[in-house]
Nucleic acid binder design. Structure first.
Lengths: 234, 234
DNA sequence: CTTGAGGCAATTGCATGCACTTTTTGCCTT
DNA sequence: AAGGCAAAAAGTGCATGCAATTGCCTCAAG
C-alpha cells in the first residue's frame, strides 16, 4: 500500500470512498456477499474508519451494500428474484425514457443520437466488443437524457448501476453485438419518427433480451467465491 | 448524556437519526432550504455529531438533503422543474404498478383492494380528510405491492416520500375527496377485470391530477421562509 | 459611502479512543 | 469424541478532539 491517496479523484474523502468502493462493486471487483471490513478498507485507502463508515452508509442507502447492525457490511447480494425485478424495472424505465425521447428530444438531440448510432455500426462489423460497449453506454445515456425528466433519469441511472455487475459479460454471447445494434436501430427509428409507443416497446424488448442474456451469467456468477483478481490491482 | 432518547424507536442511532430527520423533512416540519446544523441536530436529539453526520450523508444519498462540501447541509430544495419531473415520474411509476397489479395480483389481493376501496367510500361521505388520507395511502401501497416487483416498489415508495411534502394539502381543495375516490374506482375496476392498459392509464391520470392540485400549493409554499406553522393557507 | 483585505468565530471533515456486540477459540463436561 | 460454555479476540458504534475551511465582521483606504 502506497502512502498517498492520489489514486482517487477530487471531492471530500467520503465522496472518494463512495466512488472507490461503489466502482469496485459495480465493476464486479468486489463480489456480492463479500465482506466489507471497515478497518481493512480504511487501511487499504489510507484513511480513517470514519469516512469509510459514512461511505458504507451511503452505499447502503443506494442499495449497493447491505448492512447488518453490529455485524458488518457486505456487498449487496441480490436474489434471483430481486435481480429479475430489477431487470424488469429497467425495461420499464427504459421504455419510459424511449417514449419520452420520441416525444421530446430536440432536433439536435435526435441528430446526435442517429449519428452516434450509425457510428457504432462500425464497431459491430469489427466485432469490437469493448468499443461497442462504450457506444452502447452512450446510446442509453442519450435516451435517459432525451426524456427531459431529471427524476426518471436519476432512477434509471441508479438502476442501471445496480445491474452493471450482471450485464458485464452479455456481449460475449455470439451474435449479441449485431442483435443489439438491430434492437437499437428499432428504437432510433421509432424515436426519429416521433412514435413514442413504438420506441417504448422497442426499448422494453431490448432490455428484456439483455436480461435473458445476462441471467445466464448471473446464475453461474452468483455462488462463485472470489477467485483470481479480474481487474488488476491499483 | 442524559439518558433518554426514547422519543425515537429502535435500531442503531444512525437509523434513528435518518428516520427522525427524514420524517421531519417528509412531513414538511423542516422546510426546503432550511439549514441542517450538525451540532444543533446532535444536541436536539442528544447524540454526538457522528451519527448525525452519517444520517445526513444517507439522506443526501436519498436526495432528501443537499450537501455542500464544507458548507453544511440543507433540506433539499426542489425547483419547480424538478418537482414537475418527480410528479411525472410518479405518474409513470404508478401506471406501471397498476398495470402489473392488474396482471399479477392474487385473488386475495384483489379482494383486499376492493374491500378497502369500498370501505373508504364512507370517509368520502363523511368528508373525513384525515381518515381518507389513511385509506388513500394504504390504497396506493396495495398497488405497489400488487405489482410483485420489489425494485419498482422501492423506486415508487422512494419517489412518493420525496413528493410527500408537496402532496400534503391536496385534499383541502373542495371536492377533491370525491374525485379522488372516483379515480381510485376507475383503477380498481380496471384491475379487477385484469385490464392492465386501462389500469395504467387510470393510475397515470390520477397522479397527474394530484400533481396539478398540489402544484398550486407548491408554488406558494416554495419561496416562503420557515415559520412555526407547518401548513398555513393563504 | 463604498470597497477590499485581514483576522476571528463558527462549523465542517477526519482521526482516534473507548464501550459494547459478535465471533471465535480452547477447555471442560458428558 | 462431540457438544457446550467461557473467555479472548475481533470488529462495529458512537463520542470526542483537533485541524482546516468558510463566512462574517471589522477597519482602513479610496
Amino acid at each position: 500500500m502506497s502512502g498517498k491517496r492520489s489514486l482517487i479523484r477530487s471531492g471530500t474523502t467520503v465522496d472518494q470512498m463512495v466512488r472507490a468502493i461503489g466502482d469496485r462493486i459495480v465493476t464486479g471487483y468486489l463480489r456480492p456477499g463479500e465482506k466489507l471490513d471497515e478497518t481493512s478498507l480504511a487501511a487499504r485507502f489510507d484513511v480513517s474508519r470514519t469516512p469509510v463508515r459514512e461511505a458504507l452508509g451511503q452505499l447502503s442507502a443506494m442499495g449497493l451494500v447491505e448492512r447488518r447492525p453490529n455485524r458488518g457490511a457486505i456487498v449487496a447480494v441480490v436474489t434471483q428474484e430481486h435481480l429479475a425485478s430489477m431487470f424488469e424495472s429497467m425495461a420499464e424505465l427504459e421504455a419510459i425514457c424511449a417514449r419520452f425521447s420520441a416525444e421530446r428530444m430536440t432536433s439536435s438531440e435526435r441528430r446526435g443520437l442517429e449519428i452516434e448510432h450509425q457510428g457504432s455500426a462500425r464497431m459491430v462489423q469489427l466485432g469490437a466488443e469493448e468499443d461497442y460497449e462504450y457506444f452502447n453506454t452512450e446510446f442509453h445515456s442519450r435516451l435517459y437524457r432525451g426524456a427531459h425528466n431529471t427524476h426518471i433519469h436519476d432512477l434509471t441511472v441508479m438502476t442501471r448501476s445496480r445491474l452493471a455487475p450482471f450485464r458485464r459479460a452479455q456481449f460475449m454471447l455470439p451474435g449479441r453485438l449485431a442483435k443489439s445494434w438491430q434492437e437499437h436501430d428499432l428504437i432510433v427509428t421509432a424515436i426519429l419518427r416521433g412514435d413514442g409507443a413504438a420506441a417504448g416497446k422497442a426499448a422494453r424488448d431490448h432490455v428484456s433480451i439483455v436480461s435473458e442474456a445476462s441471467a445466464v451469467f448471473a446464475v453461474g456468477d452468483q455462488p462463485k467465491a472470489a477467485s483470481t483478481t479480474p481487474v488488476t490491482a491499483d
